[in-house]
Design a protein around this nucleic acid. Structure first.
Length: 833
RNA sequence: GCGAAAGUGGCGGAAUGGGCAGACGCGCCAGACUUAGGAUCUGGUCCCGCAAGGGGUGGGGGUUCGAGUCCCCCCUUUCGCACCA
C-alpha cells in the first residue's frame, strides 16, 4: 500500500478490475431473486451536473448493497437523447444535432464511468437511434389502431422561444417550462394527440398499488387528473333553437341560479352576435372580456369582468328565464365552457353578481343554523335545500342524486364525470425527434406507415433555421412518398413526437436493448419487472411520471406486459443548490463533477453528496463540506495502511464470528459493540430509510473509535483479529458510498474477492447490545445525576440505584418524594415536593 | 387564497411508538509537531455565568412526572394548485 491515499490511482485500478470481472453485468437467472434499480436517464446536455451525481450515487449505493445482499441486480443507464437543445446548438454552430448529441453522450458517459457507478453498460440505450425510436413509431401505430392516437385541429400552447407546441403539462404559470420568462401563446393547429383521458380513471384507480410512492407525487397527479363527478344541464336559449349546456357539480343549488355565464370565446358567442339587437356592442364586449380572460395573462386575474348578452335562457328545473352573461373567468376548455351562476353558493359567482347587481338567492341552508342575510360571502358547503320546489328539505347529497336522475328522465340533462386532464398533444414542429409515422394520401387521406416500413428515419443534413415550421417540410425526399394503399402520391407527416414519448417506456428496453422483433422482450420483462426502485427529481411528478404510467397501461392492453404499474417504489430526491439557489450557467455557480473528481476523487464526491443532507432534502453545496469528506477518507486509508502488516491475513471471511463474546476483553467488547452497531444501523437504514448521512456519521464514529483503540491494540488489550474484524466492518459499511476505496482496503486486508462478491454480513445482535447503561436521574424533570445500571436491570434495581446515589440524596434531603418514575434502560424521574 | 412539508448552535445536520437536545461533519479557539503551514495530531466549542446555577429546539398556550417530538392558536420559509364551476 502507498503511504498516502491516492484516489486517482485507486479508482482507475478498481474501475478496470470491476469491468474485467464483469461485476455489473446482470443476466436473467430464474434461480435468483432480482432487483431493478432505475434512475432517471439524463438528457445529454454536454455535462453531468451535481444533481445527476446525487441521483446516481443514491441509486448506486442501493444497487451495491442489494448486490451484496445476494440479489441479481439490474442497474442500467441511457440517454434521453432527442430534444431541442441539440437543434438549437445545430442552428448556432452549424453542426448536425446527431453529432452534437453523440459527442455529448461520449463526454457524459466518461463522467459517469469516472464516478464508478455500477451500470451494466451493455444495456445502454440512446433514444435518438433509429433502433430505439422505431419502437416509438410502432407504439404510436398501435395506439392509432386503437383510436388512442388521433389528429385534431385545436388551440395549442405555442412557445415562441422553442418555436413549437407544448403539452399542457409543459406550461408552467402561463409560460414555457424551459423558458420561464416566455409567455405561451395560443395557436390553432392540426395536432396529433394521445388519448390519455381514456385512462384517467385507471390512472387514479391504480394509485392504490403505489403504496411506496411519495404521497406528494400521488396528490399532484390526483390534482392534475382532477376528476369531478357532476351533472350536465341544458338551458334553452330564448330566440334560438339551441340549448346551452352547463356542467355543474352542485345541481342541488340550481334553484338559486340567477344567470348563465359563458366564456367570451364560447362557440355560441358568434351566433349570439349575429342574432343580437346590437351586434357591434356585443362583439366589443366579447373582445374586451377576452382580453381580461384567464390564460391570456400570466398571472391569474382577480377581477371579475363581464357583460350581459341580451339573451335569456330557461332553467329547466323551475322554468325561470335568466340572463346569459359573458364572463371572463369561465374556462372554455373545461366542462362545457358554460356555467350556471349560483351566487349564494359559489364564491366566484357571488363576486360577479355583486359587481353587476345580479340577484342572490339562498337555496341551501346549513344544518345547524340559518345563514345571515344578506350574505357576505357564498355558502359553499353541503346543507339542506330550501325554496327549491319539490326538492326542498332534501340534503345536498340526496338532491344531487335525485335531480340528476330527474334531468335524465326529462331529457334536459345527465350525470357525467369531467376531468381536468386533457389529451396529450405530442406533435412538435421540430427536427430532432421521432418522426410521426403517418402519410397523407391525396386519395386515401390519413394512412399509417405500415409496420414493415418502420422506422421512418430522420433524414440527415437537414437545414435547420428555427423558423417555426417543421424543418422536415423542406426535405422533399422525406416529404414526398407513395401511398402504401393506393400507390398514389402521398405527403409524409413532418412533425416529430414530444420527447416525453421516448422516456415513457425506455426502462422496458433496458431489459433487452437490442431486440429487433418488438419493442420489448416479454420474457426479460417478466423476470426483471417491476422496477423495484426508481429514483429521480420531484420536477417530474406530473410530466414523465404520469406519461410513463399511461404507457404501461396501453402496453398492458396491447398485451405487451402483464401488469398495470411499472414502478413499485419511487424516491424523489432533493435538488443540489449552491448558495441557496439552483446551479446554473447564467448564475455562474455551477460546480463541475469532473473537476471535483480530479481534485478529490469520485469516492469523496459521492461520500460528500450522501453525507451533506438526507436525500429527500435540498443540498446546499459547500466547498468546506467536501473537504471534510476528503479528510475522513484519508483517515480511514491511513488507519488501514498503518496496521496493514498486522491485519493482512489471507482469509476471505471477517474474523469476527470466530471470536466468542464472553472471552473478549472489555476494550475488545467496546470496539466490537460499536462495529456491530454501525453495521446494524447501515443495514436497517438501507432497507427502508436511506438517511445515508447518518450511516456515514456512524462510520465516522467507528473510525474515531478505532483510532482511539490504537493504544489498547499496541498494549495487547485488543487482539489483532478483533481489531481487524472491526476494521472490516467499517470497510463493508462504507462500501456502498465509497466503493473504490472500500475495495482497495478490502484487498489490503488480504481478501482476494471484491466486495460486490462478498455477502453483506449480518450484524450480531448480542455484540451490538449494550451491557451497561448510564441512566440519567431527574429530580422534577431536571437531570441531576447519572447512575450505571446493567442493560437488563429491573425497574426495582434501577430505582434503588437511583435513590442511593449520593447526588440524588443531596437533592432529596428534606423533601418529600411523591413518585418515582422508572423507565428501564432510559431514565428515572423523582417527583418531589 | 387553498393544500402539503418544514422551522433545532456560527453553518450542514442528529435525536420523533414522549424519556440525557445538539450525534457526525464544517467553522472557530487553544495547544503539539514544524523554518512555515491552508498538511497532520490533541483538547475545547448551544447561550448567560468566575462558579454554584440558570436558560434553551420560530412565538404563545395546553396535555404530561417528563414535550424538539402530542394538541390548539399565531408567525416565517419552501413547494404544489391557483378562478376546473
Amino acid at each position: 500500500m502507498d503511504a498516502n491515499y491516492n484516489p486517482q490511482q485507486i479508482e482507475t485500478k478498481w474501475q478496470r478490475r470491476w469491468a474485467e470481472l464483469k461485476l455489473f453485468d446482470a443476466d436473467v437467472d430464474p434461480a435468483r431473486k432480482k432487483y431493478y434499480v432505475l434512475e432517471m436517464l439524463p438528457y445529454p446536455s454536454g455535462a453531468l451536473h451535481m444533481g445527476h451525481v446525487r441521483n446516481y450515487t443514491l441509486g448506486d449505493a442501493l444497487a451495491r448493497y442489494m448486490g451484496m445482499k445476494g440479489f441479481n441486480v439490474i442497474h442500467p443507464m441511457g440517454w434521453d437523447a432527442f430534444g431541442l437543445p441539440a437543434e438549437n446548438a445545430a442552428i448556432k454552430h452549424g453542426r448536425p444535432p446527431a453529432d452534437w448529441t453523440f459527442d455529448n453522450i461520449a463526454v457524459m458517459r466518461g463522467q459517469l464511468k469516472r464516478l464508478g457507478f455500477s451500470y451494466d453498460w451493455r444495456r445502454e440505450i440512446a433514444t435518438c437511434t433509429p433502433e430505439y425510436y422505431r419502437w416509438n413509431q410502432w407504439l404510436f401505430l398501435k395506439m392509432y389502431e386503437r383510436g388512442l392516437a388521433y389528429r385534431k385541429k385545436s388551440r395549442v400552447n405555442w412557445c415562441p422561444e422553442c418555436e413549437t407546441v407544448l403539452a399542457n403539462e409543459q406550461v408552467v404559470n402561463g409560460c414555457c417550462w424551459r423558458h420561464e420568462e416566455t409567455p405561451v401563446v395560443e395557436k390553432e393547429l392540426e395536432q396529433w394527440f394521445l388519448k390519455i383521458t381514456a385512462y384517467a380513471d385507471r390512472l387514479l384507480e391504480d394509485m392504490r398499488h403505489l403504496v411506496r410512492w411519495p404521497e406528494r407525487v400521488l396528490t399532484m397527479q390526483r390534482n392534475w387528473i382532477g376528476k369531478s363527478p357532476g351533472t350536465f344541464v341544458d338551458f334553452k336559449v330564448e330566440g334560438l333553437d339551441e340549448s346551452l349546456r352547463v356542467f355543474t357539480t352542485r345541481v342541488d343549488t340550481i334553484f338559486g341560479c340567477t344567470a348563465v355565464f359563458i366564456g367570451p370565446d364560447h362557440p355560441l358567442v358568434e351566433k349570439l352576435i349575429r342574432l343580437s339587437a346590437s351586434p357591434q356592442k356585443l362583439r366589443a364586449d366579447a373582445e374586451r372580456i377576452q382580453a381580461a380572460a384567464t390564460g391570456s395573462r400570466a398571472e391569474a386575474s382577480l377581477e371579475k369582468v363581464g357583460a350581459a348578452t341580451g339573451f335569456h335562457a330557461r332553467n329547466p328545473f323551475n322554468g325561470e328565464l335568466i340572463p346569459v352573461w359573458l364572463a371572463n373567468f369561465v374556462l372554455t376548455e373545461y366542462g362545457t365552457g358554460a356555467v350556471m351562476a349560483v351566487p349564494a353558493h359559489d364564491q366566484r359567482d357571488f363576486e360577479f353578481c355583486k359587481t353587476y347587481g345580479l340577484p342572490i338567492r339562498t337555496v341551501i341552508q346549513p344544518k345547524e343554523q340559518k345563514l345571515k342575510e344578506p350574505l357576505e360571502e357564498a355558502f359553499i358547503e353541503y346543507g339542506q335545500l330550501v325554496d327549491s320546489g319539490k326538492y326542498s328539505g332534501l340534503t345536498s347529497e340526496q338532491a344531487i342524486e335525485k335531480m340528476t336522475r330527474d334531468a335524465e328522465a326529462e331529457g334536459f340533462g345527465q350525470g357525467t364525470v369531467q376531468y381536468r386532464l386533457k389529451d396529450w398533444g405530442i406533435s412538435r414542429q421540430r427536427y430532432w425527434g421521432t418522426p410521426i409515422p403517418i402519410l397523407y394520401c391525396e386519395n386515401c387521406g390519413i394512412v399509417p406507415v405500415p409496420e414493415a416500413d418502420l422506422p421512418v428515419v430522420l433524414p440527415p443534413r437537414v437545414k435547420l433555421t428555427g423558423q417555426g415550421k417543421s424543418p422536415l417540410e423542406s426535405v422533399p425526399e422525406f416529404v414526398n412518398a407513395v401511398c402504401p394503399r393506393c400507390g398514389g402520391k402521398a405527403r409524409r407527416e413532418t412533425d416529430t413526437m414530444d420527447t416525453f414519448v421516448d422516456s415513457s417506456w425506455y426502462f422496458y428496453r433496458y431489459t433487452d436493448p437490442q431486440i429487433t422483433s418488438g419493442p420489448i422482450n416479454s420474457d426479460a420483462v417478466r423476470y426483471w419487472f417491476p422496477v423495484d426502485q426508481y429514483i429521480g427529481g420531484i420536477e417530474h411528478a406530473i410530466l414523465h411520471l404520469i406519461y410513463m404510467r399511461f404507457f404501461t397501461k396501453v402496453m398492458q392492453d396491447i398485451g405487451l406486459v402483464e401488469f398495470s404499474e411499472p414502478v413499485a417504489r419511487l424516491f424523489t430526491q432533493g435538488m443540489v443548490l449552491k448558495d441557496g439557489s439552483a446551479m446554473s450557467k447564467s448564475k455562474g455557480n455551477v460546480v463541475d463533477p469532473t473537476e471535483m473528481c480530479d481534485k478529490y476523487g469520485a469516492d469523496t464526491v459521492r461520500l460528500y453528496m450522501m453525507f451533506a443532507a438526507p436525500p429527500e432534502k435540498d443540498l446546499d453545496w459547500s466547498d468546506a463540506g467536501i473537504e471534510g469528506a476528503w479528510r475522513f477518507l484519508n483517515r480511514v486509508y491511513r488507519l488501514v495502511e498503518k496496521h496493514q502488516a498486522k491485519l493482512e491475513v489471507l482469509q476471505s471471511t471477517p474474523h469476527v464470528m470466530a471470536v466468542t463474546p464472553d472471552r473478549l476483553t472489555g476494550e475488545e467488547r467496546n470496539l466490537l459493540r460499536k462495529a456491530h452497531q454501525v453495521l446494524r444501523h447501515v443495514t436497517e437504514d438501507m432497507e427502508y430509510r436511506w438517511h445515508y448521512n447518518t450511516d456515514i456519521a456512524m462510520c465516522m464514529e467507528l473510525a474515531n473509535q478505532l483510532a482511539e483503540s490504537e493504544a489498547a491494540l499496541a498494549a495487547g488489550k485488543i487482539r489483532d483479529e478483533v481489531f481487524r474484524a472491526a476494521v472490516e466492518l467499517l470497510v463493508i459499511s462504507l462500501s456502498p458510498f465509497a466503493p473504490h476505496l472500500a475495495d482497495e482496503l478490502w484487498e489490503a486486508l488480504g481478501h482476494s474477492e471484491p466486495l460486490l462478491k462478498t455477502p453483506w454480513p449480518a450484524f450480531d445482535p448480542q455484540l451490538a447490545a449494550e451491557e451497561e447503561l448510564e441512566i440519567p436521574v431527574q429530580i422534577n424533570g431536571k437531570v441531576r445525576a447519572r447512575v450505571l445500571a446493567a442493560a437488563d436491570a429491573s425497574e426495582e434495581e434501577i430505582r434503588r440505584l437511583a435513590l442511593a446515589d449520593e447526588k440524588v440524596r443531596q437533592y432529596l434531603n428534606g423533601r418529600q418524594v411523591i413518585k418515582v418514575i422508572v423507565v428501564p434502560q432510559k431514565l428515572v424521574n423523582v417527583v418531589v415536593k
